[in-house]
Nucleic acid binder design. Sequence first.
RNA 1: GGCUCAUUGGUGUAGGGGCAACACGUCCGACUGUCUAUUGGAUGCCAAGGGUUCGAUUCCCUUAUGAGCCGCCA
Length: 587
Amino acid sequence: MYRTHNCGELRMEHAEQQVNLAGWVQRTREFGGMTFVDLRDRYGITQLVFNQETDKELCDRAGKLGREFVIQAKGKVMERSNKNPNLPTGDVELIVSELNILNASKTPPFTVEDDTDGGEDVRMKYRFLDLRRPQVQQNIMLRHRIAQEVRKYLDSQGFLEIETPYLIRSTPEGARDFVVPSRMNPGQFYALPQSPQTFKQLLMVAGYDRYFQIVRCFRDEDLRADRQPEFTQIDCEMTFVEQEDILNTFENMMRHIMKYVHNIEIDKVPRMTYADAMRLYGSDKPDIRFGMTFVELNDVAQNQGFKVFDDAELVVGICAEGCASYTRKQLDGLTDFVKRPQIGAKGLVYVKCNEDGTFKSSVDKFFNQEQLKTWADKMGAKAGDLLLVISGVKEKARKQLNELRLEIGNQLGLRKKDDYKFLWVLDFPLLEWAEEDERWVARHHPFTSPKAEDFDKMDTDPGEVRANAYDMVLNGTEIGGGSVRIHDRGLQERVFELLGMPEEESVEKFGFLMGAFEYGAPPHAGLAFGFDRLCSLLGGADAIRDFIAFPKNNSGRDVMIDAPSKIDAIQYEELCIKSVVPEKEEV
RNA sequence: GGCUCAUUGGUGUAGGGGCAACACGUCCGACUGUCUAUUGGAUGCCAAGGGUUCGAUUCCCUUAUGAGCCGCCA
């Protein structure tokens, strides 16, 4: 046995005991005839002490230990004369009698501690060192905990964890596929799954009425801080259930996770329709940690001579409580914020509700005090508040005001990371108009069932058809979503028709599923959670990278193992493929 | 596909048309109670290529790499 205890466990009660510890040298402190060594493993740090008076040779060897050396130390646990209240093990130290260097280490390029001096780049290149840092280990451990609680909960509810294949066939809808050439089938390719969608539905047809999987998914799209080319989903599907059952089951899953991971009890998760979310927050994933909901001002702000408003489809505002004291500079800052090309607003109208009951606005030329008061009343503003108003085409204006609302929320500190507010968003539209292809595409996926009461709109007004689809939102981030699936072949064919997919094509692409649906497909529904994202939210971070042991960078590269890489000519030959990368890019 | 920013020692930053500053780390030395120990000393030529200039790390262009965003991500 290399160790009898770990580096985070020794306390006063262990005093006088003979123990063995093993770990990494965090740092050494030489102090004349004494040497202190901080020994670290993932459980904590314990101080080792060497004294020249006791054993000069041993003390000298300890002084020569470099950072990140792997050592084993045997000795006696003693109460410290100078205790360190900052360390859980700070009451004791190990008086070392035997020191074994298990492995020396090159000097690491950055310090392996929470407050590291290393930048993002070096840390990613030496990810194995970065992963030694306590903070990163906390993240990885949190991920483990959440995964275990998910399994515990779903198992308790009768869910079966079933694996599905990674080498599948390419499907037309959705994101770009990663493809894998098949050596045994020249000229043909597997695709890596964007999600196990069709397989889980087949499992439902097969009678495994409660399925889940914590599973890797692959999408070949451009990346962001919260997007990786391979990411993990908690993928679930249930048979003989309605939307309500799904909502309850998975709301309870989140309740379970919050309770056992963070010891937080969450209330009944509120629900909001997609239409309301758009109207009140301008977003399909509203952050309901704070109010500041949209108020539409068309009736009080239009037709009073201000052309910008009169020409707009929508005039909509928010009331920022207590912000009437914003300076000219701050207001200009907000205006610049919404005018940034990413947001694209033409401008921003503000109204300060002064303490004396008067109003000061950027449109005083066009509106008198009385008129401004009707705005303030409509928005429930009181003295000291600031009204911010945007106008334009409905959808765009809402999107812009949403960005502004979130920005103000940030500025006012209303978006606390440890304040967890869950929300179900329901009744998403079934379809979305794809400008580029000039056709309707499934907003969720093509197996999503339309709401029965909207069936008659499918031919007349496809854009208005709502789906039995739902998203779970946490603090303004979509953490999961799903739908009640179509289990009727006739309805499925009708949806494919709406999507402009001819029968031959749908049979070619989804024939296996359609075929299966002819052999007794039960009603079923499901959803999937973005596991990495959930971990990052519960860990209080923005980047999911911090919660993935070996993430990829912005351009999909693993800088540690330097992937992707070229392959040998022989591999091309075997796979019957040819690279047509232009010369200059071949390097 | 587009936009923005960045690239200075082992690491993180500062600087600025002629001398590269600070901190951490590392190495050598002092010190018997430290725990961001303290203390004395040592340690870099500014991503690459091209241009402007008497002179470039600094200004300009290109490329590469990285970060963030828009498009994209059912």
